[in-house]
Design a protein around this nucleic acid. Structure first.
Lengths: 173, 173
DNA sequence: TCCATCTGATTGCATTTTGAAACTGGTTGT
DNA sequence: ACAACCAGTTTCAAAATGCAATCAGATGGA
């Protein structure tokens, strides 16, 4: 799992690490969906990633230090995947990616409400979110995974998403 | 050149369009290196992209409206590739990508000075740069390509880069 | 105990994408 | 005429992707 390093340019290096179809989508699910187990990421994601690709990407992200892996004490077979400081610092990049996608691509209303709120909130919200993520991924990954430790920002984003979705369902009959 | 659209999530859609090894690297060269011809992008890039991949990516970016193509009046065989409003609005994303890469990946000093300046400058500098880019890519792509219309921001970034490189060459003997 | 279920994966295989190098058909400047 | 240059294309091997099926070791309920 070695980078080839074709150049030391920050943009090039970032593309060597994250420039593929799935890496950022997986980190998105862990970050915004708080999906912490293999099966959760695999089956609850909108896009339907293949299991072999997911396994390969998790291994890769692990080797780059973008996620960490921990045994789940409540289930000897489960592993808990968590964000690290490096991936938590991707929050502003996600905000920009979401903002750009919302303006230039055919996004759906429900799936873009979180991106909208994240953009509106700006740096103060990003900082608050990153602090939350440190608590549920770095300080207490087990509590963060089983829901005993929560992120207020994530709760707000998720509530807004469910609200929009409920409204859309009602409108659709 | 159709997107598959596995979901309407802004992050997923952005990855479907830009989530590959080369697209952002090519846009970076056009944006920060003002490389406007096929051969310039091909041979003057740090990373050595293959010509068939470059051709395929340019075609793809063209179909997504992320670049435009224009006949060069000074040379019947040359085409001028230019940014569009959509790709100009990637400036803040590039700033974030550069900032993250500089903090978490083994970047080289010379190639990261521009990212550092872009990050320090913040939104005011990004806005100024985007205005420059509109002039040399949208308003006057021909003048922008042949150097008769310039970007002050780009000039500053390039000067800083050359300065660092000269200093490194001196130090290395 | 038995069995269905769930866990994080792995395997096989067809398709697609990538990459390096050579090559094409044309243009430009001397 | 001719060398240098132009934007790509062709060729072919290697790697990545995607899908379906499968795996072995828990776990939970009857």
């Amino acid at each position: 799992m070695d980078i080839e390093i074709r150049s030391g340019c920050p943009i090039n290096l970032t593309m060597e690490v994250l420039g593929d179809r799935w890496s950022l989508v997986i980190i998105r699910d862990i970050m915004f969906g708080n999906r912490r187990h293999f099966r959760e990421i695999l089956t609850q994601s909108e896009e339907g990633i293949a299991s072999n690709i997911l396994a390969a990407r998790l291994k890769r992200l692990l080797s780059y230090g973008l996620i960490s892996k921990l045994d789940d004490p409540s289930h000897s077979q489960k592993s808990i995947y968590s964000l690290t400081e490096a991936s938590i610092q991707l929050v502003p990049m996600f905000a920009m990616i979401g903002a750009w996608g919302r303006r230039h691509l055919p996004v759906s209303e429900d799936l873009s409400i979180r991106a909208e709120l994240l953009e509106e909130g700006g740096q103060p919200l990003w900082d608050e979110f990153m602090e939350d993520l440190r608590r549920i991924h770095v300080e207490d990954p087990i509590g963060g995974a089983n829901g005993s430790v929560k992120s207020p920002v994530l709760a707000r984003l998720t509530a807004a998403f469910l609200e929009v979705r409920a409204r859309m369902d009602t409108a659709a009959g």
